[in-house]
């Protein structure tokens, strides 16, 4: 056999064998990986919307997904909004909940972030940041409170607490939420959400 045909033969065989192997592995793991991603989103929804049991995707675009959440008995529990935007270091993906009337933020959680450990990463902390997101006004622009306060009761309903030494990361989260709220309000005005006519299905 000539050298070049041997080279082709060896590379093709190795490629085919490894391709076959990988196809098998992918088949075995695909479902679990999809489940993992699904579980992460469901877990985030449960944190921000109370009693959410059944989710339906109402609207989807790049960097913004809106879910409608139902309770067990088919009653509307609220809405969950998954949004992605630019943080201080890299993209931040977060989930926040809106009440049944789409006028109040019920909570916020961070799904994915790569902010500076120990500083910007405090946006994932309950005491430092997330607790201040419950019961915020969703009808207008939210404002960052600087310097930060200690307890949520010191804030107005339109204010979000900043984080000491991580003002930028907290502001970035706020910007993502403000932008998504604006889009949500636009969609409400256009009548795209809430889409009542599908309720009886």
């Amino acid at each position: 056999m000539s050298l070049s045909s041997r080279m082709i033969l060896v590379l093709t065989t190795v490629g085919l064998i490894s391709g076959g192997f990988l196809a098998g592995v992918a088949k075995l793991t695909k479902e679990r990986i999809a489940l993992n991603i699904q579980a992460e989103i469901e877990e985030a929804i449960k944190i921000v919307v109370d009693d959410a049991e059944v989710s339906t995707v109402l609207y989807e675009e790049e960097d913004l997904v809106i879910y409608r959440e139902m309770e067990d008995d088919g009653q509307l529990a609220g809405y969950a909004i998954q949004a992605t935007g630019v943080g201080f270091q890299d993209k931040i993906t977060l989930m926040f909940g809106l009440d049944e009337t789409l006028t109040k933020i019920t909570g916020l959680t961070i799904i994915d972030q790569k902010e500076t450990p120990g500083l910007g990463a405090k946006i994932t902390g309950w005491d430092a940041f997330l607790q201040f997101w419950e019961d915020r006004d969703a009808t207008g622009l939210l404002i960052l409170r600087k310097p930060p306060v200690r307890t949520p009761s010191e804030l107005l309903a339109t204010e979000i607490n900043s984080i000491t030494a991580a003002t930028i990361s907290s502001r970035k989260v706020l910007e993502i939420v403000n932008l998504s709220l604006e889009k949500v309000r636009g969609l409400i005005a256009e009548g795209k959400i809430p889409s009542e006519e599908h309720d009886d299905h």
């Binding site: 490894s18 192997f21 990988l22 592995v25 992918a26 075995l28 793991t29 990986i33 993992n36």
Partner: peptide, 18 residues
């Protein structure tokens, strides 16, 4: 590289799944 990349992909999928 083909051999290494195959095992890396397996490791990556395994970690993602489990």
């Amino acid at each position: 590289i083909v051999v290494i990349a195959s095992f890396v992909t397996i490791a990556d999928q395994f970690l993602k799944a489990f």
